[in-house]
Design a protein around this nucleic acid. Sequence first.
DNA 1: TTGAATTAAACAAACGTTTAATTAAATTTT
DNA 2: AAAATTTAATTAAACGTTTGTTTAATTCAA
Lengths: 212, 212
Amino acid sequence: MSTDKREHIDKREHILTEAEKLFAEKGFDGTSVRDIAHNAGVNLAMISYYFGSKEKLLESLIELRAGYTIGILEELNKDESLSPWDKIERLVDYYVDKIITNLPFHNIMHQQSLNARSSEIKDLIMSIKLRNVEQVRKIFADGEQKGIFRKIDMEMTMGTIMGTISQYTISRDYGCRVLNIDRTHEETYRTELALRLKAHLKQLLRAHLGIK
Amino acid sequence: MSTDKREHIDKREHILTEAEKLFAEKGFDGTSVRDIAHNAGVNLAMISYYFGSKEKLLESLIELRAGYTIGILEELNKDESLSPWDKIERLVDYYVDKIITNLPFHNIMHQQSLNARSSEIKDLIMSIKLRNVEQVRKIFADGEQKGIFRKIDMEMTMGTIMGTISQYTISRDYGCRVLNIDRTHEETYRTELALRLKAHLKQLLRAHLGIK
DNA sequence: TTGAATTAAACAAACGTTTAATTAAATTTT
DNA sequence: AAAATTTAATTAAACGTTTGTTTAATTCAA
């Protein structure tokens, strides 16, 4: 029956979600397969049974989570009714929301960008990032060509967008201290951070790109 | 004699330098004490003998490397002959050079910001970052008060500076691909990256702060 | 009755750390 | 200055855990 198949998939996803939390909190190498099995409430051997290995589990997680970002960017690019600057504003909104609602996964991507030792995972992350970057570059190139954007270093500007968002999403403790946000409420922290990030990035990019 | 003392300290520093390379490449948890001992050419037991533990070794490394940053920032702040904008330009030059000439250490600080499990290290990194941030904030506040800088979100702007620099220093492979820099020569990569980062950040901040 | 899901137990390897013995250097005593 | 003594540096080996993965037996569902 289809319910069995569903249950099977749900269990796989459940393990991945628990692994995601642990990887984000303690790092990939700092998380043991026993940790994952215990937190997911499954037997130790099930991780090898489902995923083959700890590394393959991470690959499965990345493939699961990174799937649908590119679709949104492509759609955004296709939309002829939006001006390049509109697209940048939507891009900022989208990225900020996406990262802040997926903090654990973003954390994992970050740590793997730094220290991935498996070349499969390196390549996987690289291809995901490059595909996204390519879509963003198109928006900048279009705006520049149409004379709407001032001439800028596009690659560096993309780095500024992603880097700024990352800076305070990497460590909640640090973000709360510097931004003077209440440390205790996860929810208020996220909404406050999202608001400030969006406002700041739009103001920054507007000035940088020379939008009136 | 003093030479003996020197040799002793040199050996400690040698171990720290080798550990730094390994931590940066494979992560703290991905690096074994045997790795470090082997790369440094010392007996395994010497790491415990000198540092007490692997974690204490990391603390020693951070304390060694993070020592003198704050001094430069304080000096920069005291200098009355510089305008706030001059200070920002020097700040950018200083940070870019510092991070690019200390990529492995910066990598380690980054990964520990993400996933440090020892609260001693968490606190250590937090205090280092906060002290630096405080000095940078003073420059922005001074410029704003004097009416030289437009009113901006200071904390977010600091995040933009640090985040932009981090973005392409995290992964050389990624940086080379996006920025179209030759992957094979470490030296040209560093100088090219430093040049572009400085130019971009100054142009960006000039527009953002409303400097004519 | 067949195949998949689940389990407890075991596996060898790698881990951080400690031990006890030995060598080298520094200090004190002759 | 030489010998004796104390302290520090270095070593190989072992410690007990923990690691990721596998096995072989068992339960469950088709």
